Measured scan of single mutants.
Amino acid sequence: GIPATNLSRVAGLEKQLAIELKVKQGAENMIQTYSNGSTKDRKLLLTAQQMLQDSKTKIDIIRMQLRRALQ
């Protein structure tokens, strides 16, 4: 079985993952909103794209940590 310490770690990672998935969803929504907007929305679009990139990276890292914890 999986050690108890790993189980609480997994629960924490799953919570983090859920949050990051919401951030990713929000960033994707912002990108959709701003991509057909005016030029003043360009900065917001770039910010949203950066957020999305960061979020995807975090999600990958969390998933990797989850896999390790579940081994």
Rank of each mutant, 00 (worst) to 15 (best):
G1E: 09
G1C: 15
I2Q: 10
I2Y: 11
I2T: 10
I2A: 12
I2R: 08
I2N: 10
I2L: 08
P3E: 11
P3K: 08
P3N: 12
P3F: 04
P3A: 07
A4K: 13
A4T: 10
A4Q: 11
A4P: 08
A4V: 13
T5Q: 09
T5W: 06
T5P: 10
T5S: 10
T5M: 12
T5F: 11
T5Y: 06
T5G: 12
N6M: 05
N6T: 05
N6E: 10
N6F: 01
N6Q: 07
L7H: 14
L7W: 02
L7R: 13
L7T: 08
L7A: 13
S8L: 09
S8Q: 12
S8I: 09
S8V: 13
R9E: 13
R9H: 11
R9L: 14
R9K: 11
R9C: 15
R9Y: 15
V10C: 12
V10Y: 05
V10I: 15
V10F: 03
V10Q: 03
A11F: 04
A11V: 08
A11H: 08
A11D: 08
A11I: 11
A11T: 08
G12S: 14
L13W: 03
L13H: 01
L13T: 00
L13M: 04
L13K: 00
E14I: 15
E14P: 01
E14S: 07
E14W: 15
E14A: 14
E14T: 12
E14H: 11
K15E: 08
K15F: 07
K15M: 10
Q16C: 12
Q16I: 07
Q16S: 05
L17E: 00
L17I: 02
L17R: 00
L17D: 00
A18P: 00
I19D: 11
I19C: 11
I19W: 09
I19L: 10
I19T: 08
I19Y: 09
I19V: 06
I19Q: 11
E20I: 07
E20N: 03
E20V: 07
L21T: 03
L21S: 02
L21I: 07
K22G: 06
K22H: 05
K22D: 05
K22P: 00
V23P: 00
V23K: 13
V23R: 15
V23H: 06
V23C: 09
V23G: 02
V23D: 01
K24E: 02
K24V: 05
K24W: 06
K24G: 01
K24Q: 06
K24N: 02
Q25I: 07
Q25A: 11
G26C: 15
G26H: 15
A27G: 01
A27S: 02
A27P: 00
A27Q: 02
A27V: 13
A27H: 07
A27E: 00
E28P: 00
E28M: 11
E28R: 04
E28S: 02
N29C: 15
N29T: 10
N29A: 12
N29I: 13
N29D: 13
M30S: 03
M30P: 00
M30L: 12
M30A: 08
M30V: 05
M30I: 06
M30F: 06
I31L: 05
I31G: 01
I31E: 02
I31P: 00
I31Y: 03
I31C: 05
Q32E: 14
Q32L: 11
Q32M: 09
Q32I: 12
Q32H: 10
Q32S: 09
Q32D: 10
Q32W: 11
T33E: 15
T33M: 14
T33N: 13
T33S: 12
T33V: 11
Y34P: 02
Y34N: 03
Y34I: 11
Y34G: 03
Y34A: 09
S35W: 09
S35T: 13
S35A: 09
S35D: 09
S35I: 13
S35G: 07
N36P: 04
N36V: 05
N36Q: 12
N36L: 04
N36F: 05
N36S: 13
N36R: 04
G37D: 11
G37L: 04
G37T: 05
G37P: 07
G37M: 05
S38E: 13
S38T: 11
S38R: 05
S38A: 11
S38H: 09
T39G: 09
T39M: 08
K40T: 13
K40G: 10
K40N: 09
K40V: 12
K40R: 07
K40S: 10
D41W: 09
D41E: 06
D41C: 07
D41I: 02
D41N: 06
D41T: 03
D41H: 04
R42T: 11
R42E: 15
R42Y: 14
R42H: 14
R42P: 14
R42A: 15
R42K: 12
R42N: 14
K43C: 13
L44M: 12
L44V: 03
L45H: 02
L45T: 02
L45Q: 02
L45P: 00
L45N: 01
L46G: 03
L46W: 06
L46C: 10
L46F: 06
L46A: 11
T47K: 14
T47Q: 15
T47M: 15
T47H: 13
T47G: 07
T47S: 12
A48P: 00
A48D: 00
A48M: 05
A48V: 04
A48C: 03
A48R: 00
A48H: 03
Q49Y: 14
Q49R: 13
Q49W: 12
Q49N: 05
Q49P: 00
Q49G: 02
Q49K: 07
Q50N: 06
Q50P: 00
Q50V: 08
M51G: 01
M51K: 04
M51N: 03
M51L: 11
M51H: 03
L52G: 01
L52S: 01
Q53Y: 06
Q53N: 05
Q53A: 12
Q53G: 03
D54F: 04
D54G: 03
D54I: 07
D54E: 11
D54Y: 04
D54Q: 06
D54W: 04
S55Q: 05
S55A: 13
S55E: 01
S55D: 00
S55Y: 01
K56A: 06
K56Q: 12
K56M: 13
K56D: 05
T57N: 10
T57Q: 12
T57Y: 12
T57K: 09
T57H: 13
K58E: 02
K58I: 05
K58T: 03
K58V: 03
I59L: 04
D60V: 11
D60C: 15
D60E: 13
D60K: 15
D60W: 14
I61Y: 11
I61K: 11
I61F: 12
I62K: 00
I62Y: 02
I62R: 00
I62P: 00
I62N: 00
I62F: 02
R63C: 14
R63G: 02
R63M: 13
R63Y: 12
R63P: 00
R63W: 08
M64G: 10
M64D: 14
M64F: 06
M64V: 08
Q65S: 03
Q65L: 13
Q65E: 12
Q65R: 05
L66W: 01
L66C: 02
L66V: 03
L66T: 01
L66F: 01
L66N: 00
R67Y: 09
R67V: 10
R68N: 12
R68H: 10
R68C: 15
R68Q: 12
A69W: 04
A69P: 02
L70N: 04
L70D: 03
L70K: 13
L70E: 05
L70C: 09
Q71W: 03
Q71C: 13
Q71E: 08
Q71K: 07
Q71D: 11
Q71P: 05
